[in-house]
Simulated scan of single mutants.
Amino acid sequence: MATKKGVLGNGTEVWILHGAVPTLTKMNCITELALGDDSQAEVDNTCLEETEVRTNDYGLSTPGEGSFKINTDPKNATHITLLDLADKKELVGIYVGWSDGTTAPTVATGAVDLPEDRTWSWCTAILRKNSVVIGLDALNNHTVPFKRQSKVTDEFKVQP
C-alpha cells in the first residue's frame, strides 16, 4: 500500500486580518495564492588582493510580491472585502491554513492564535487592486497583487 506524500492544495483556507479593530475574515473561493519569494542583498567582502573570484555575504532580505486570484463574484462578500482593501492599499495579515487540518484561527486583543493541528503559512502585506479580466468562456476574475512586509513564516502541524 502506497503512503500519502505531501499536502494537497485542495482544502487550503485563507484568512485576512484587517481593520483598526482587528477583524479576521475567512476568504471564500480563492482560486490561487502565491506568497512570493524573497531576494537577498549581497554584500561584497572581496579583498583588493584577490585576482580570480569575488566573495560576498548575504545582507538583508527584501520581502517578495505575491497575489490572490479570485473568480470575482459580487454576491461573495469576502471578494468585495478583498477588492475594497486592495483599493485602499491596506496593510493586512494573511493566514493560510493548509489542508492537513480544518481548525480555524481565532483573534483576541489583536493577536491571531493559530491552532497546532494544521500547518500554517502567514505574513503581512500591502494589497493593491488590479482591473478585472474578462474573457470568452471564462469567469470574470481579479488578480490582487500584494507586496509582503514580512517574511513568510511557516508553522508546521504538530504530529501526534
Rank of each mutant, 00 (worst) to 15 (best):
L82N: 01
N56V: 11
H18I: 04
I70P: 00
S39K: 05
D44P: 09
I94S: 11
N76Q: 13
I70F: 01
D137S: 13
C29D: 15
T103R: 07
N45K: 06
Y58I: 12
N130R: 12
S121A: 13
A104R: 00
Q149C: 02
L82R: 00
H18C: 00
V112S: 08
V144Y: 06
T62K: 13
V107K: 10
Y95S: 12
L85P: 00
L48P: 06
R148H: 04
L85M: 08
D137N: 14
L24F: 07
N140R: 11
K75T: 11
L33Y: 02
D100C: 06
C47T: 07
K26A: 12
R54K: 11
I80T: 05
V21M: 10
E65D: 08
W122T: 10
I80Q: 11
L83E: 05
C29M: 15
N141A: 15
D117H: 03
W98I: 03
N71A: 09
S131G: 15
I30Y: 09
L136V: 14
G93K: 06
A111P: 02
C123H: 00
T25F: 02
H142E: 14
A138L: 12
D38C: 02
K151N: 12
F68N: 05
R118C: 09
D117Y: 05
T109S: 15
S131Y: 09
D117Q: 07
D37P: 01
A138M: 08
V107F: 04
I30R: 04
T78G: 03
L33H: 07
P105K: 06
C123T: 14
T23F: 01
T55F: 12
D73I: 06
S99Q: 07
D37N: 11
L136W: 09
T31Y: 00
V53I: 11
Q40E: 13
R118Q: 05
V96G: 06
L83A: 14
G101M: 10
A111V: 14
S131R: 09
R118N: 05
T119G: 04
T46L: 03
A86I: 08
G59C: 05
G93N: 04
C29R: 15
S39F: 00
L114G: 07
T124N: 14
L24S: 11
L82T: 01
E42I: 03
G135A: 15
E52H: 08
G135W: 03
L24G: 05
G135F: 08
K89L: 08
K88V: 15
D87C: 05
N56G: 15
A125R: 02
G59M: 05
T31K: 03
L114T: 02
S39W: 00
G97H: 01
E90K: 08
D73A: 06
T109Q: 13
T51A: 12
K88F: 13
V21K: 13
K88Q: 15
V21F: 07
I94E: 15
T124E: 15
C29Q: 15
V133S: 14
R148C: 02
V43P: 00
D117F: 04
T109K: 13
N28Y: 05
